[in-house]
Nucleic acid binder design. Structure first.
Length: 209
DNA sequence: ATAATGATTCGCT
DNA sequence: GCGAATCATTATG
């Protein structure tokens, strides 16, 4: 079911550059997000993602090709991290996808803890293995130690944050879709099935199934 | 220079 | 279910 007995491959920038956000968002379910900051290595199995497909996508910060200092990274080539602060509290982590000037990104919303759980618990100030350790885009980033320092950085071992995919992919039938969370303002784009999640995993946020 | 806001989370009711 | 927390980013004057 879950790809633990599988070999893994580090996803290179070219992987993200060759695909749009919808393809990547679906593909990343079952891949591993890994961070290694100051020697504290944590791994999570990605269970929930959302695709943001600007310029058409009204829910994206880069909607209508809106270029600001913050959104600029999405207009570059795929393979970089787009991290921003939400509600002044939460760091939300995205992977930029697509080619130059195609501002696509995939928001990682939840992972299942795999390794470095002790670091995650300290960062989250928790002492039990509960869903709220890593399920939800803000708490996921907190558990994995992701902050603005990773913004605009290529995903790579050198930069301490990268993604590995298993040789055995999760079957498409195990990946559910729904509308995206928290984008009700986006009109017809709010109801598009751009959220992806692992059907069997309890480590997902939200109620939409 | 100032004001509004948000791809959220948590604690309380 | 509801409201507060909290600040980088953005738009506006």
């Amino acid at each position: 079911m879950l790809p633990f007995d599988s070999n893994r491959t580090v996803l290179k920038p070219s992987f993200f550059q060759a695909r749009d956000a919808l393809e990547v968002a679906q593909y990343l379910i079952g891949s591993f997000l890994i961070t290694n900051f100051e020697g504290e290595r944590t791994e999570g199995l990605i269970t929930e993602t959302e695709a943001y497909c600007a310029p058409q996508d009204k829910a994206s910060h880069a909607w209508n090709n809106r270029r600001t200092n913050r959104t600029e990274v999405m207009f570059g080539e795929g393979g970089k991290a787009y991290v921003y602060l939400c509600y002044g509290i939460h760091h939300l982590f995205n992977v930029v996808c697509g080619k130059q000037d195609q501002p696509h990104a995939v928001l990682i919303r939840a992972v299942m803890p795999v390794a470095g759980v002790e670091y995650m618990m300290v960062r989250r100030k928790m002492n039990a293995l509960e869903k709220r350790l890593t399920s939800g885009p803000g708490v996921m980033s907190q558990a994995m130690g992701i902050t603005l320092r990773s913004n605009n950085k290529l995903l790579s071992c050198e930069n301490g944050i990268w993604i590995e995919s298993p040789d055995k992919a999760v079957p498409t039938s195990d990946v559910g879709t729904s509308r995206r969370i928290g984008v009700d303002y986006a009109g017809e784009w709010a109801i598009k099935p751009y959220r992806f999640y692992h059907r069997q995993s309890p480590w997902v946020s939200g109620k939409l199934k």
